[in-house]
Write a protein that binds this DNA or RNA. Structure first.
Length: 467
RNA sequence: GGCCAGGUGGCAGAGUGGUUAUGCUGCGGCCUGCAAAGCCGUCUACGCCGGUUCGAUUCCGACCCUGGCCUCCA
């Protein structure tokens, strides 16, 4: 059986699920729009990172070679603004926040892509692409700007379902007199000090935002890539413009064969966005929950659906993960240690292969945990635990040791004192002095420690309710 | 105004033309000195109105509602 044949993806371009057939099975190419590094990543920014990280891992199981590029936008007006405000150069800002991004993503179990290209490392290639577009009549120079002429590309609007002729209707497109069509977008624009800039045939300037993705995917992945992903808000204009640039620069060749777009993380059902000021920063969330909790929550809805973020949801996921970790610990004590199996169970795989149906995959994972809890011999336990851990490896969960997971953040706790109290309590229990025993348990509970008496010993974990 | 999603049990969230999602919570039980943990059981779910069908939450049509894109945005 060939699992690769059954990967199905929803293609935004076609508005339907399609069987994924790579251009070249020996080299599958994936490009996802990465962060613009001008401040800290919020949890909404983390969703595509987690989704495409999972897709990358899944594809890597199916094909011998997968090249995944996730860019870093390190030249942008917002970076300029941040740099000016803090009186530093843009690379200081870009480096600071790309480092922060890496730290945050690592905590969420997001691995590094195969390539992480930066816009400023590709200026010559950008200029080259602009020259090609000007030469073949798809772009024109006007007042120091170079603009892409959307009317020169018949396919413009296909991805987002827009009609070039009706683009004036909304009347929100910035009308600038030197544009031939209001929808024409900037490939290159002039810079003035202290803005960053590079020499070009059109004078000293900087690239437009959309250009970098076309150029970097061309440079690192080739003219036609298999999958291009990003957030739903990038469909228009960003991805529409990328298509226009790339297709026109490549003599009409298809740019990306499958387009995938993730839904938003919402807060009280409203899109979380920096302009609305309702963002939750990843590094802050990591102070109240383990990265796996955040990852599980991000995966708890199918990627195209909106995901409403809340404290309650966070608590819920924490409990779910605690339970599975508890099962893992108990079963390991009885039948362990366990090792991940070669591959997760068929149902788990089938769920992921169906357009990354992560809620279904997680449901299967929970069912496997139940099977593990109910296992009544070592073989059954090993099999369930193996499948569970293999699923965890693929989806990025259960990477921690169960005991330390359940102990939680032990900072500020005095292990020796806890152990001493437990010994004291067990002595009391042996003497059937239950009043004293319960008193000690209450004392520990007040310290945030919950006791669990098992067969012939007593263990503890972090209390699930914290103030 | 144009385009695109979606409305499922107390909550979150999959899915299906007729059969148990899964998780969290509540309730009952097993276990326990009592708890905790785990397990078992359980709570009249599919926005509204028509249509197709032997049968629709699942297909078709209308309607209502919610959110998103059309400007930077994951």
């Amino acid at each position: 059986m060939n699992q690769a044949e059954s990967l199905v993806l929803y293609n935004t371009l076609k508005r339907e699920k399609q069987v994924f057939v790579p251009q070249d099975p020996e080299r599958v190419t994936l490009y996802a729009c990465g962060p613009t590094v001008y401040n800290q990543a919020h949890i909404g920014n983390a969703r595509p990172a987690v989704i495409f990280d999972l897709l990358f891992k899944l594809l890597s199981r199916l094909y011998p070679k997968v090249v995944y590029a996730r860019n870093i936008t390190d030249v942008d007006d917002k970076i300029n603004a941040a740099a000016a405000e803090q009186n530093v150069t843009i690379d200081v800002i870009a480096n600071r926040y790309s480092d922060a991004y890496h730290t945050d993503m690592a905590a969420l179990g997001v691995g590094l892509p195969s390539i992480e290209p930066r816009a400023t490392d590709h200026i010559p290639q950008m200029i080259d692409m602009i020259e090609r577009l000007v030469a073949n009549g798809h772009a024109y120079e006007a007042e120091g700007h170079v603009l892409f002429a959307i009317e020169s590309f018949a396919g413009y609007g296909a991805l987002s379902g827009r009609d070039t002729g009706e683009m004036l209707a909304g009347a929100r497109v910035g009308v600038v007199d030197f544009k031939r069509h209001p929808g024409d977008f900037v490939l290159w624009k002039p810079s003035v000090e202290p803005q960053p800039g590079w020499d070009s045939p059109w004078g000293w300037g900087r690239p437009g935002w959309h250009l970098e993705c076309s150029v970097m995917s061309e440079t690192h992945l080739g003219e036609t890539i298999d999958i291009h992903g990003g957030g739903q808000d990038l469909v228009f204009p960003h991805h529409e413009n990328e298509i226009a640039q790339s297709v026109c620069a490549h003599g009409g060749k298809v740019f990306a064969r499958y387009w995938m777009h993730n839904g938003f993380v919402t807060c009280k059902r409203r899109k979380m966005s920096k302009s609305l000021g309702n963002t939750l920063v990843v590094s802050e969330l990591l102070k109240q929950a383990n990265g796996e909790v955040l990852r599980y929550l991000l995966l708890s809805a199918q990627y195209r659906q909106p995901l409403d973020w809340s404290e309650e949801a966070l608590t819920r996921v924490q409990r779910t993960l605690d339970r599975v970790y508890g099962v893992l610990r108990d079963a390991a004590a009885k039948y362990g240690p366990f090792q991940a199996a070669q591959s997760p169970g068929d149902k788990f795989m089938a769920a992921l292969l169906d357009d990354l149906n992560t809620p279904d995959a997680l449901a299967e994972l929970n069912s496997e945990a139940r099977r593990l809890a109910n296992a009544d011999d070592a073989d059954a336990a090993r099999q369930s635990a193996g499948a569970l851990l293999a699923a965890g490896e693929l989806i990025g969960l259960f990477r921690e040791d169960p005991a330390s997971w359940l102990a939680g953040d032990t900072e500020g706790l005095d292990d020796a004192l806890i152990d001493q109290l437990i010994v004291e309590r067990n002595t009391a229990r042996k003497e059937r002095n239950f009043a004293r025993a319960d008193e000690i348990r209450d004392q520990l509970q007040a310290m945030g420690i919950t006791l669990e008496d098992v067969a012939d010993s007593t263990r503890w974990r972090r209390a699930s309710e914290q103030g």
